[in-house]
Amino acid sequence: MSRLTDAHVTLAKEIIGRYPRPKSALVPLLHLAQEQDGYITRDAMVHIGQLVGVTSAEVYGTATFYEMFKFEPVGKYVVNICGTMSCALMGSEELMHHAEKRLGIKAGGTTADGMFTLEHAECQAACTEAPCLQVNYRYRYRLTPADLDQLIDDLSSERLTHEIPPHGTVAKVRQHIPPHLGVGAVEPELVTESPVWLDSKAAL
């Protein structure tokens, strides 16, 4: 449905320019598309293929490999409850059952109002803080069912919008390399010499 907006195309070109080969920008650009639409549209994949010079099929192959990319609309808030060992030992299944009951959906489903998608997630690197979950990739630690209820209340009443952007946006801060400060990416074929600093006795 939607290709990348002009503003995102500008951003996409900046991102592509950071890599020695354009295809490396594929995953970052898919994030950009998901940030724009909340999920990855067919047209966005075609557009990204054109921007980095690969076929739509290649974009599709890469995109579907990764868990975070969604190919149909999901809730504004995607709640990922970890179920791997440390969290499981600390009661994550109970938490998941509670979430399913509270939201009235099964893991993998989206609420009718489009606010929540509930997912079973694998290890989120917060094992000491089990059981944990992420809402749009923002952590909540050591949750009890009551904590989960409170979280859903807060999200439903949009009390956490300052911290948790709608699904699609991951990091709210982007890297930006001002052209005059950056070295610039060079195709590997064009580099044949060792870096200059290796020749000197000391750089400083």
């Binding site: 950071r18 490396s24 995953v27 970052p28 990764y66 868990e67 390399i177 950056g182 400083l204």
Partner: peptide, 17 residues
Amino acid sequence: LGSDFSLDIVLHWGAGA
């Protein structure tokens, strides 16, 4: 730091795998 050492560091995100 004014030396002949130049380097770009590019932040790259994964997407869940």
